[in-house]
């Protein structure tokens, strides 16, 4: 499958996790990696599966590198019908109320333009003893398996 991993990051943690997911999937798939800040909303492609990794920052806001993308989406209003994506959130339960808001906002932004979410969005808690990659690799494998029948090849 052709896969694009898009990350929205503030501290670099989501970028590092995205690199790890890329390495993990690369053996069996063709995987591209892009910072959301460098990604043109007009370039979504039905023949690719999108894995989005997005943190939360400040008071439940999108992280810095996702903000230009969100603005470009609002401006371009692309039709994302037929686009499939899965989304993995990163947050910190020390800030319980807003812990997964960044990825929730990103999910809402994509679905509002017609993209279809594959599987559940889960959020890693930076204050837990679990490592993000321990959660993310199994999650990514499961999402890629689900996407196999959905993404046009």
């Amino acid at each position: 499958m052709d896969i694009t991993i898009l990350y929205g990051t503030e501290t670099g943690n989501a970028e590092m996790l995205s690199e790890d997911i890329q390495s993990h999937l690369e053996g069996d798939h063709s995987v591209e990696l892009s910072n959301l800040s460098d990604f043109d909303p007009g370039s979504f492609d039905k023949n690719r599966f999108y894995i989005v990794v997005c943190s939360t920052y400040g008071d439940g806001e999108l992280p810095a590198s996702a903000q230009p993308f969100a603005e470009a989406m609002e401006a371009a209003k692309p039709d994302l019908a037929g686009i499939h994506f899965a989304i993995f959130g990163m947050g910190d339960m020390e800030y319980e109320e807003t812990f997964n808001n960044g990825s929730k906002r990103m999910e809402d932004l994509l679905t509002a333009h017609g993209a279809k979410k594959v599987g559940e969005r889960i959020t890693h808690d930076a204050s837990s003893s679990d490592l993000a990659e321990d959660l993310a690799m199994d999650w990514a494998d499961a999402r890629v398996a689900e996407a196999a029948g959905l993404v046009e090849a």
């Binding site: 501290t11 943690n13 910190d92 808690d125 930076a126 204050s127």
Partner: peptide
């Protein structure tokens, strides 16, 4: 008590 913030150490 902000161990999540200290998580950048892993990078």
């Amino acid at each position: 008590d902000h161990q999540g913030t200290k998580g950048v150490i892993r990078q």
